[in-house]
């Protein structure tokens, strides 16, 4: 084989893997849509479930997922940002910092069900928050914390050192430099990471299974100490519990479709932001 043939083979292999990936994605979409589309209606999105989950809608689960996700972000965003700024801007490249970075990366690899058990032990039992939005949000928050920290770190590291120098050389303090130059420049990158974390928090089942979610509530949650229905857990519950498995399965696919659309929308926002960042470019 001459080198052109080798190149042709190489490209061929790369194209095939691309086709394979698209195929998998297409199949997932096809099956979820084909099985879920017919249960989706305005009522499905806006009503509470009735008749042992076989009729009515999933509105409480949507609201619950919304609360849990917002709660997780409120908790994780400030802490994650502060942590990343500290790690990147204040003490770069020491051994201690490297150990901390390593720990954060390892935290990102902890299985989500372990976070669920941790949340049960600490927030539900030890701190006495009970099975509630608060416990679930805190658990999800801890789960997405490493993602937010590493996305923010990367965005901060991508800010050219020359901009920091320019600011400092004008007599700005380090804090002014971070606030007025580094953070605004890194913002699109940070936003991208945060939004992807939102998608992850919205879609996870295991962390909220023991800390926040319940199979059924009559209406909407009234306080952060209430249990809630949540979309991913609702799918799990429909498939494993209840008395009318066939009818529940259809609804589960409907929920899955909604969840998929939700997460895709969130990712789309992240992609748009990233494109925009490319357009303006960094110096």
């Amino acid at each position: 084989m001459n080198k052109n043939q080798v190149q042709w083979l190489g490209f061929m292999f790369l194209s095939l893997t691309m086709v394979f990936i698209l195929l998998v994605l297409g199949l997932i979409l096809y099956f979820i849509i084909a099985r879920g589309i017919h249960v989706i209606s305005w009522e499905f999105l806006t009503q509470v479930p009735r008749r042992a989950m076989t009729q009515g809608g999933i509105a409480p689960a949507l609201v619950g997922t919304f609360y849990l996700t917002i709660g997780a972000i409120i908790f994780a965003l400030p802490i994650g940002l502060a942590c990343a700024i500290y790690l990147v801007e204040y003490y770069p490249k020491s051994i201690v910092i490297n150990i901390i970075r390593l720990s954060i990366n390892n935290l990102a690899g902890v299985p989500s069900v372990v976070f669920g058990l941790f949340g049960l032990a600490v927030f539900v039992r030890f701190l006495g928050f009970g099975v509630s939005i608060l416990s679930g949000s805190l658990t999800l928050g801890i789960m997405i914390l490493p993602g937010i920290i590493s996305a923010t770190q990367e965005a901060l590291l991508a800010v050219p050192q020359s901009l920091r120098e320019a600011s400092l050389a004008l007599g700005a303090t380090q804090w002014q430099t971070i606030r007025k130059t580094v953070l605004p420049t890194a913002l699109p990158g940070i936003m991208t990471g945060v939004i992807l974390s939102v998608g992850r928090a919205a879609g996870e089942t295991a962390p909220i299974m023991f800390t926040a979610a319940t199979f059924y509530t009559r209406g909407f949650p009234g306080s952060i100490f209430d249990q809630v229905m949540a979309l991913p857990y609702h799918i799990y519950a429909l498939m494993t519990e209840g008395t009318f498995p066939e009818r529940q399965t259809a609804i589960a696919y409907g929920c899955a479709l909604i969840l998929l659309i939700l997460v895709l929308l969130i990712s789309a926002i992240a992609i748009i932001l990233r494109q925009r960042q490319r357009q303006y470019g960094t110096v």
């Binding site: 020359s162 901009l163 050389a169 004008l170 700005a172 960094t282």
Partner: peptide, 24 residues
Amino acid sequence: MVFQKPNPFPKSIFENLSYGLKVN
């Protein structure tokens, strides 16, 4: 200081110039 590579802030021309005064 003026650096090797031009390093304007990714901001408007006016903001680049008012930056030093504002931080002071």
